[in-house]
Every structure is written in structure tokens, then in C-alpha cells.
Amino acid sequence: MQHRVVYQRFFALILVCSELLFCRLAFSAEDPLVMGIFPRRNAATTITLFKPMAAYLSKQLGREVTLVTARNFASFWKGIVDKKYDIAHYNQYHYIKSHDEFGYEVILKNEEFGESLIASALVVRNDSGINTLQDLKGKKILFGGGPKAMQSYIITTLMLRRAGLMKGDYQELFAKNPPNACIGVYHQHADAAGAGNLVVNFPAVKNKINVDEISFLELSKKMEQLPWAVKGNMDPALKIKIQSVLSTLTSSEEGRSVLKQAKLTNLLKVEDAQYNTHREIIKELEAYP
């Protein structure tokens, strides 16, 4: 009887060890998590900013995390289409489209300069003589990013539509990104810029131009910041784990360093419903000819 108990315990130990070993091997055999960051800034800068975050996440998950970016929005979007990214950080428009078409689920949003909400703005030089949106008729408007830029283009264009300016009433120009749009206006390469309201806080802008010489012609209401999403088929536990790790960065010195490096003040948990405003805006804009 005693021998039987001994044998049972021995086999139980063997099973436990085998399971542990199997699990370990199974974990080791998992593909790396791919973290795709949209080219809000140039690729090199993007990699520099987010590399610590990827490393931190990898460390916390016990799983390799590969950081990727793209040369431009189109290339990045192709990665979405190909479901290449396990974790994606992009603008609100990209998220809505990826969610609707490819099942990406938002888990986090940015907090920049202490603000988790962001408004869109049309920026003009103080000395431009432009006081209303209608004054922009026939002018050159330099939008940050491209036609897919939520804050810089979609929302600001809707603002223009709502003000009665249709397509063709002004000349659309596209800067590399919102800061460049503001700088371009400052340097009078265009009459107005479409960008998020926080752009004037960016060092890239503040250190280049005298922001006091520009101002917001019109501001939208504040909406959710840039989202972080995961594949829709991701293991929920992993999804939660990722959300947990990244949303608690401020609680550790290492996490704060990661945020600082990424030029963020925090990452906050968020749900898909919080981006419905953006869905409506997109829908409304698409309704215009």
C-alpha cells in the first residue's frame, strides 16, 4: 500500500515536471509579439523612442517583442491589412478601420503632456488677417500627415465643411506631420495648418518657431488620444497582461523612463466605445461630396 502511494507520488512528480518542461518549451516556441508603431515621426526616431517600451514589455511578458515601424502611413497600413502587428499604435482613424475590418481591439490610449484627450485645430499666423474659417476660402491649408490623419485632417476638414468650405474652396497641402504643418504656416508656406492642439507643445515646434506668433483659428471638442490596439484573436490573458503592463508604467521607475523615452506621460486603459465619436466624425465627413 505504502509502495503504491510512493509510486503514485513519483508519477505525479514526473507529470508535474513534464508539464512544466512542456510549458516552458511551448513558451519558447511562441512567435515573437510584433509591436507596430505608425510613422508619426520618422522611422529612426520612432524606433529610438519605443525600443525601451518593447524591451520592457518583452521582459514583463517573458516573450520576445519585435518593434517595427514603416516609412509611411501606406506601408504601415499594409502591415495592418496583413495582420502583421500583434500590438499596433496608430491614429484613431486607423484604429477604427482596423477594428471594423480586421478586428483589432483597443486596449490603451496615449496621455501626452498630461492630456489624454486631444482637440483638432486650424492654426494660422497671428498676422495672417484670417479670423474665421470662412477666411480660409481660396487659401492654402497645410495638413499634418495625410488624408488619413484623424486629428490633423479628418476632424479639421469636417470643421471646414461644417463652416461651409467644400473641397476645392481651398488648396490642400500635406506636411509630413502636424508639427511641420505648424512650422510651415509659421514660415508662411501655407495660410493655415491642420493639426492637433497639443502640437504647439511639442519641442519640435516650440524650439523651432515662436509659437506666440501663431494661434488656433478654430478648435474641435476634445476626443480620445491615439490608441494602442491588439489583434482581435489575441489570447485574452495576453491582452490583459499587455494592457496591465503598459498601463502601469508610471508605477515603476523603469516604466516612467520608458514613457519619457516615448515622449508620453502615461498610457491609459480605454475601450472601443470611447472612439465612437471618431466613428461618427468619419461617417459625417464621408457623407460630404
Binding site: 506636411a175 509630413k176 506631420n177 504643418a181 523651432k208
Partner: peptide, 12 residues
């Protein structure tokens, strides 16, 4: 590309 993209930051 920077000029075409009004990428003044990059130019800087």
C-alpha cells in the same frame, strides 16, 4: 522628400 512633405523638422 522633406521639402515635398513640408518636413521642416527633418530639414532642420
Amino acid at each position: 522628400d522633406a521639402i515635398l512633405g513640408y518636413d521642416f523638422i527633418l530639414l532642420d
